[in-house]
Amino acid sequence: ETQAGIKEEIRRQEFLLNSLHRDLQGGIKDLSKEERLWEVQRILTALKRKLR
């Protein structure tokens, strides 16, 4: 995994995270989306740690 590859994956995950946040802010309670949001946040945290 290169730095560029990790950064690209971070961009993808952040896009997905923002999309999930928008969907959930629409007021629709969706447990699967909430679980996915937490999963994406965990992935992002792990990726950012790899960059250090």
Rank of each mutant, 00 (worst) to 15 (best):
T2P: 05
Q3Y: 13
E34V: 15
R36S: 08
Q3V: 15
G5T: 12
Q3P: 10
D30M: 02
R11W: 03
Q41R: 10
R52D: 15
R52K: 12
W38G: 09
K48Y: 15
L24D: 03
R52M: 14
L17R: 05
K50C: 13
E9W: 03
E34M: 15
N18R: 12
Q13R: 02
L47M: 09
N18K: 11
I10R: 01
R36D: 06
R36F: 06
W38M: 14
D30G: 03
V40Y: 02
L51P: 00
E14W: 07
V40T: 07
Q41H: 12
K29W: 15
R22Q: 11
S32V: 13
E14F: 04
L16K: 05
R22W: 03
I28F: 08
G27L: 06
L47G: 00
T2H: 08
R22F: 08
Q25C: 10
E35L: 11
W38R: 15
I10A: 00
Q13S: 03
I43C: 04
Q13P: 01
L20P: 01
T2A: 11
Q3F: 11
I28K: 08
R49E: 15
F15C: 13
W38Q: 13
K48C: 07
D30W: 02
L16A: 02
K7P: 02
L51K: 01
L16N: 02
R49W: 05
R42S: 10
E34H: 09
L31V: 13
R42P: 00
K33G: 04
T2E: 12
L37C: 09
R42K: 08
L24F: 04
L37A: 05
W38I: 14
W38F: 11
T45M: 09
G5Q: 15
L51A: 02
G27P: 10
R11Y: 06
E14R: 04
G5K: 14
W38H: 13
E8I: 05
G5F: 14
L24C: 04
E14Q: 12
K50H: 04
K50D: 04
E39V: 05
L20H: 00
Q41A: 07
A46L: 10
R22L: 10
L31H: 13
K7M: 14
R12A: 05
R22E: 09
G5A: 15
L37Y: 14
Q41V: 14
R12K: 11
I6H: 01
L17Q: 03
R36N: 05
S32W: 13
E14A: 04
E34A: 07
E9A: 10
D23A: 11
F15D: 15
R11I: 08
E14L: 11
I6W: 12
L51C: 04
I28A: 07
Q13E: 02
G26N: 13
T2M: 10
R52C: 15
G27N: 08
L44D: 00
Q25I: 09
A46N: 07
R52A: 14
G27I: 05
E35T: 06
R49C: 09
E1S: 12
E39C: 05
K50F: 04
L16S: 01
E39Q: 08
L31R: 11
L44I: 12
A46M: 12
L24M: 09
K7V: 09
R36V: 07
F15G: 08
G27W: 04
I10V: 02
G27A: 07
R52T: 14
E8S: 08
L20E: 00
T45G: 05
K7W: 12
E1A: 11
R52Q: 15
V40R: 01
F15S: 15
L16H: 02
V40C: 06
T45D: 13
T45W: 11
K33V: 12
L47S: 01
L31D: 11
K29R: 12
L31G: 08
